[in-house]
């Protein structure tokens, strides 16, 4: 062990400065929004065939990771759910359960024509619309949307989070409150198909 000196600053001054930065110059809200928008981690929940383009988005060519989005395994460590196309009645329950397990603030992107209004399967007897199941932030059309489109959607979501202060409001108020899913959970998971 060598002897030496430890330089300890004036803790009072440092604390004051930190407080000034966080509350004065840069409001804490902004930090929350900024940090959230660059750590959008989509969960591995593949609902339909748009998943091929989802996979392509995070492949070397488009490299979704450059936007701060990295698909991750468990819902507990993720805060973004990308609905990849059609949601069937059987899958709807899984989507809702995954959504509920994710920590807030959390966001959802609905990908593909099917997720907008059914797309090719608009008159199928086995589908629900994702917006009936979870609140959706961004819709992107296309069947399937190109990977660039999905990358763009992620960037748009980041802008939305920063400009509308979605994340910080959510953290402060506990619940976002502006959009609510339509179908109650009992109906989804009790498979009460008639009410869907």
């Amino acid at each position: 062990m060598q002897e030496g000196k430890a330089y300890v600053g004036n803790l009072d001054v440092t604390a004051k400065r930190a407080r000034d930065i966080l509350l004065g110059k840069v409001p804490l809200d902004k930090v929350v929004d900024w940090a959230t928008s660059f750590s959008l981690w989509p969960v591995h929940l593949t609902t339909s065939c748009c998943s091929t383009e989802f996979a392509a988005t995070f492949s070397p060519r488009v490299d979704g990771e450059q936007f701060g989005a990295l698909p991750w395994v468990g819902p507990r460590q993720t805060n973004l759910i990308i609905i990849e196309g059609t949601v069937t009645k059987k899958m709807a329950c899984a989507v809702r359960l995954t959504w509920e397990q994710m920590p807030a603030p959390k966001f959802a992107i609905a990908m593909g024509a099917c997720a907008l209004d059914g797309g090719l399967f608009y008159n199928s007897y086995n589908i629900v619309k994702p917006w009936q199941v979870i609140p959706i932030d961004i819709y992107l059309p296309g069947c399937p949307p190109r990977p660039e489109t999905l990358a763009r959607a992620i960037v748009t979501l980041q802008r939305k989070i920063r400009s509308k202060k979605v994340a910080s409001t959510w953290v402060r108020e506990g619940w976002r409150g502006d959009i609510e899913p339509v179908i109650p959970k009992e109906d989804l998971c009790g498979w009460a198909a008639k009410s869907i």
Partner: peptide
């Protein structure tokens, strides 16, 4: 069955040409 999108039923009501893009969605 989590992705059962009723291809067989929809194939019965969409004429003869339109099912081609429909069936494509099975293995895109």
């Amino acid at each position: 069955g989590y992705v059962h999108r009723t291809m067989e039923k929809l194939g019965e009501i969409r004429g003869w040409i339109k099912p081609i893009p429909l069936f494509e969605r099975m293995a895109i």
